[in-house]
């Protein structure tokens, strides 16, 4: 039995390297254990006569792990071993599976949370994903979302779209007259420019990294991702 297993191990390859147009891809089998994988990497990646490898140009490689879930320390071990053995820099580790936690996070990020109430002075409403507010935001009130913010009423308070850094986030309101607009890490307030507040939507212009105001109809051109039809 043990002999048979050993035989199997020596016959099948858990690690395969492929060269494609996009670059090197390292396929790691997902049926064996992680230790087996490491063992094979250790042996397979040894390259005879690689002593001068530190001087050769650095090549990046994509690692595909199939249906294997790797946690952060495991990913780190993989990166290290691949770098040490072959001087390859791991560009990205692709896995077909994610944890339930990650899945739920992604789902929430893409969800629209609808809220029907007024956000009054001193109140803060923060949601994950997009926010649809059926009501007004009064001066002194704050609405924030990790995604887009759509206000059906009058927006007079503070607003922070993409509050965890999503630069593509937009703000729209029936009446857009905010005291402070923030999108990702940029902000703009009333005093900066009297002209800026004309329009019904605000977005972050990637070119000069400033917040711009415009009419609603330009949104589908600059943010096609808003369409989920």
């Amino acid at each position: 039995m043990a002999q048979k297993q050993r035989q199997k191990k020596s016959n099948t390859h858990y690690v395969t390297i492929k060269g494609t147009k996009e670059g090197l891809i390292l396929h790691l089998d997902d049926t064996c254990s992680f230790d087996q994988l490491l063992e094979e990497l250790e042996t397979k990646l040894i390259h005879p006569g690689t002593e001068d490898s530190s001087e050769s140009p650095k090549i990046t490689v994509k690692v595909k792990v199939g249906k294997r879930y790797l946690n952060k320390p495991q990913e780190e071990i993989l990166r290290n071993i691949i770098y040490q053995k072959k001087n390859l820099i791991v560009d990205i580790i692709e896995s077909d599976v994610i944890t339930r936690e990650e899945a739920e996070f992604m789902k929430k990020e893409n969800e629209i949370t609808s809220v029907s109430r007024m956000i009054r002075s001193g109140q803060i409403l923060k949601v994950q994903g997009d926010l649809l507010l059926v009501g007004d935001v009064n001066p002194g009130g704050t609405v924030a979302a990790t995604g887009n913010i759509f206000v059906m009423g009058t927006l007079k308070g503070n607003v922070h779209a993409g509050c965890e850094g999503r630069k593509s986030a937009v703000v729209t309101a029936s009446v857009l007259n905010p005291t402070l607009v923030r999108i990702a890490d940029q902000f703009i307030n009333e005093e900066e420019n009297e002209q800026v507040y004309s329009g019904e939507c605000a977005y972050l212009d990637e070119e000069d990294n400033t917040i711009k105001f415009d009419r609603l109809h330009i949104l589908h051109q600059i943010r096609p991702g808003l369409n989920r039809l």
Partner: peptide, 12 residues
């Protein structure tokens, strides 16, 4: 009016 707004929020 700003303070009244705050208070209404708390009363609600």
């Amino acid at each position: 009016v700003r303070d009244a707004d705050r208070i209404i929020g708390l009363l609600e």
